[in-house]
Design a binder for these strands. Sequence first.
DNA 1: TAGTGGTCTAGACCACTGG
DNA 2: CAGTGGTCTAGACCACTAG
Lengths: 236, 236
Amino acid sequence: MNIPRYKQIQEDLKKRIQKGDYKVGDYLPSEHELCSAFTITRTTARKALEELQKEGFIIRQHGKGSQVRERRDSLGLLTVKGFSEAVAQQVETEFLRRPELTSWDFDLSFKPTAREMKTQCLYFSRLRYIDHQPVMVEDNWLAVEKVPGFEKQEFVEGSFFKTLSQRYLIEIIGSEQELRAIAASEKVAGLLQVKKGAPVLHITVKYLTSIPGYYIYSQLFCQTDQFPIGNSFFVQ
Amino acid sequence: MNIPRYKQIQEDLKKRIQKGDYKVGDYLPSEHELCSAFTITRTTARKALEELQKEGFIIRQHGKGSQVRERRDSLGLLTVKGFSEAVAQQVETEFLRRPELTSWDFDLSFKPTAREMKTQCLYFSRLRYIDHQPVMVEDNWLAVEKVPGFEKQEFVEGSFFKTLSQRYLIEIIGSEQELRAIAASEKVAGLLQVKKGAPVLHITVKYLTSIPGYYIYSQLFCQTDQFPIGNSFFVQ
DNA sequence: TAGTGGTCTAGACCACTGG
DNA sequence: CAGTGGTCTAGACCACTAG
């Protein structure tokens, strides 16, 4: 198997939670029980449970066990999961600009590297809807260097990140984000169907990829009245 | 020692990075080198390095090593670190309301539990400055049940979380957050020295503590013009 | 190829939780 | 008290990176 054992067990447990075999408040099998059930050692069992904790499915407590947690379903945007995976509700996407080659002329707090500037910039822009209501404008910039032909094809399952992963073997390994509350410009206000000058959330993102020195830059304008941006976080 | 070995090594390496012994771009000693240097096994060395990665100090790459990362110094607020620890710049704090006993009457998307409602509510409010400029209004609510006498004492080193930890042995183990862009009310605008109606970032937080069912509720109003809220995040 | 981190085994002792 | 997770040892094999 190429997929690590802990990952298999992690996904197995996750599916059982999602199917309802383990409900909110239930305890998963203890580390020792997982060891005998899957014929693994505690290191592997712990890794699977720690990952589930990171993802917010369970809370682990010393002396007690791993308890299934209630998950809030506002946009879990501040993770690198991407929009489509993060939202449970009905999501639609409309391209404002399909992927096209441009020059590097975006104005974010993050700046492209000199190396990236040497190649052309691939740009696309999308408008995202939840329950048929526009909630987010998204602009994306990346160096075309590592994604040749990107502009000539459809997205894998409508997902940008899935396309990167499956067609170019590029994985997202992290992100840096900056958040600001700003007044909506006329253009953004029109797209999000709010008044010009209304407060919107502006998020600039620099995604780190599995290719060193190769980044993806994004900006989001979010209408947070009905759908606040959510985030949950665990330590230990 | 009560402090785990991996934690000691993590802090040791962190201090060396902060002192400049390891600069941005440098590689930390490999896992094997740490093993012999500290007389530990790889499990322990890995744990220390993984924690440093979580905190954003290093990037670990298979086949290469642990490289010191540039840390952006906007407010790393979306972690549970708390304000004083997260910001490098000069920070001042002014109490708008010192800790006092009140009834539960806050109106956040998070609701106190029935158990919490049975005891009185401890409330305090602070205004935070960076470089003598007001940037954040912070309101906090928690059940007085687990923090008797809180209102009668000073904070440990000015830090709310340190006070909880050292005086009441309560640790923060996670948080859930919701972010919205809103128009500043007259009161908030006055405190943050912006115009009434100006966009401000509103963050509501439910902190999970080491006491099951015991939470801390906060709301923040942030003026993000000069100091955007920052966040960095890593997977794997 | 040598060196790195990723995964895993098979144990051990400890601290915490609850009855 | 029994059961849980937290920490740690002492190995092993593998996949990835770079010269």
